[in-house]
Amino acid sequence: MPDQPDNEKILLQRIREGAQDAFKAIYARYNEKIYSLAYHLTRSEVVAEEIVQDVFLKVWMQKETLPEIRDFESWLFILARNYIYTWLKTSARRQAHEMLADDHVSVEPLEVDAAIHRKELENLLREAIRQLSPQQQQVYILFREEQLTREAIAGRLGLSSETVKVHMSRAMRSIRAYITSRTPFTLILFFLLKNLLLFFPAM
């Protein structure tokens, strides 16, 4: 497409006005490239998909400022690169940490209001669960609260194990997007990686 840059400017302008079809067009144009880069560097399908989600969630959330970006493609790839870097860093640290003996840290933890913060986040999580479809909710609750295996959930609900997996993965995605779009801190990624993705195999 020779007129792509101009066409892209129009798309970005329209996204700014909230046009979902324009957003879909931009997504279609770039999502596979970003996925490939993310997968190449993280070697995990789940993580690479998450990065794609985070990148485009960010695009959608800050749609007001998109037309001001001089070179959208570069901007998008810098965003993706930063998310990839953050994942590489946190994952490396986490794994390095797991290899250290626990008593390496001698600082006495005193998390005075841990309970309160936990509650805040749990509230957000509860809201996120509330906006799931009834079936996703059911699957999620059986998995998280009742700690059932995928097979047991399938048996309980009379669904195939494959269907449960699909519901679960949609539920996870949706919860993740709900929370990340409602907290200003990218750090939330840590929490989500550690606590929400238990369903998925570890990297």
Binding site: G18, Q20, F23, K24, Y27, N31, E49, V52, Q53, F56, L57, W60, M61, Q62, E64, E111, D113, A114, A115, I116, H117, R118, E120, L121, N123, L124, E127, A128, Q131, R170, R173, S174, A177, Y178, S181, R182, T183, P184, F185, L187, I188, F190, F191, K194, N195
Partner: peptide
């Protein structure tokens, strides 16, 4: 992924919504 993004942000809050209240930092990170 595309649907998730559009659905979860649907009633479209602009920018960032702060449901996490002040001084109540993210417990695990703290």
């Amino acid at each position: 992924i595309l649907e998730t993004i559009l659905e979860t942000t649907a009633p479209a809050t602009q920018g960032i919504v702060r449901s996490i209240r002040p001084f109540r930092h993210i417990w695990w990170a703290a």
